[in-house]
Design a protein around this nucleic acid. Structure first.
Lengths: 197, 197
DNA sequence: CGCGAAATTCAACTAGCGTTGAATTTATGG
DNA sequence: CCATAAATTCAACGCTAGTTGAATTTCGCG
């Protein structure tokens, strides 16, 4: 059962495989339910390696969490084309990212945001400073209710993420992207430009 | 520091106060972060009492999250009035429940659904068997897309719950109920009776 | 009043966690 | 080719959690 001690032979990709295993487990099970020992096992490595390379479990998690998208790129894409069709483009871009492999990071983030205060703060901070500021500026919304509009969009997006990628209710979870866009896009559009008073 | 042993004097409301404390802590911190010992402390009781009355921590949690409101009653309320204004009534009823003290149970449920497979299954089961069946039947929706419609409504409701009650983004978290209804109701209405193809 | 049942606390057990330090093996630069 | 650095494993520590069993006190019924 025990492996040989000392340095392994050959090129060491250990550091990366730890990060891979961590990402996989964090997104599958969330932060709490993922143990350092499980990550080590998944990466076929001793638990001590994790602290050797990444320090504490929190630090490893921080390395793991990268925002699945560069917000600036995404926002630019959505802006281009004018406000009137931004809803569909937003949902489309969202689905494209979350359906892809990098979406797992988002799942991990949401999962842990539900059980860890600091991740919650991180998310809130991210939304208000990164997203809200840029979107409301570039989309030239009335600053009066821009915040609320972005909030409302966030509810729809968060709900979509939760139901499609975490709870996985059918038929939504298996619905082709274009149908999701057709169903949800118009509602997001109303939050952006419609009458919400 | 130590209390006296043996049976306490007076009428024992211990059982209830344990449940109260459990509900409070579960909804504040989630399942994992809430320890049996913390619940016991909050209820001013020995940890052993919890097992005496409720068995394991899982069982206590199960007792905690029985739905605070009879879904049938709620659904009936929403149905009455016809499908054309069901969206606003649904959001209204939703907000009323979640803003009230019993909403804490919902927060606890969502929190743990994000990190525990069995709670996720519980939620999915509940949605598909309890909600979906009844709503689509009583609202006389086209069975063809009734499931998808309910799914879409669920995304909006879940997102609202997450953003208003868990992440607590402003101004949404502090918005008066009637304004929430005005903002979100029409979108839910479109999911129920609008064109979503 | 007496006795069994219920309620309560205490102390301890076990299991699993994150983490650490020492020991051991391999790679590498001068 | 040797010395130092890096990589890796092992064993253990300390902590905290959930859970259990015995001891102790009170209640309530006959």
């Amino acid at each position: 059962m025990n492996l040989k001690k000392g340095r392994r032979r050959g090129s060491p990709d250990t550091r990366e495989s730890i990060l891979d295993a961590a990402r996989r487990l964090f997104s599958e099970k969330g932060f709490d339910a993922t143990t350092v020992r499980a990550i080590a096992a998944e990466a076929k490595v001793d638990p001590a390696m994790i602290h050797h390379y990444y320090g504490t479990k929190d630090q490893l998690f921080a390395e793991t969490i990268q925002f699945p998208i560069d917000p600036n790129v995404l926002i630019s894409q959505i802006i281009a084309g004018g406000p009137d069709t931004a809803g569909e483009r937003l949902v489309g871009a969202f689905i494209r990212v979350w359906d892809s492999p990098v979406g797992a990071a988002g799942v991990a983030l949401i999962r842990s945001a539900m059980s860890h205060e600091w991740t919650t703060r991180l998310l809130r901070e991210f939304f208000t400073t990164q997203i809200l500021r840029r979107v409301s500026a570039e989309l030239q919304l009335d600053p009066k209710d821009a915040q609320l509009r972005v909030n409302l969009v966030a509810t729809q997006m968060a709900g979509l993420a939760v139901m499609r990628y975490i709870i996985k209710i059918e038929p939504l979870a298996s619905l082709p992207p274009e149908q999701v866009v057709a169903a949800i896009g118009p509602n997001v559009q109303r939050y952006i430009t419609g009458d919400i008073a």
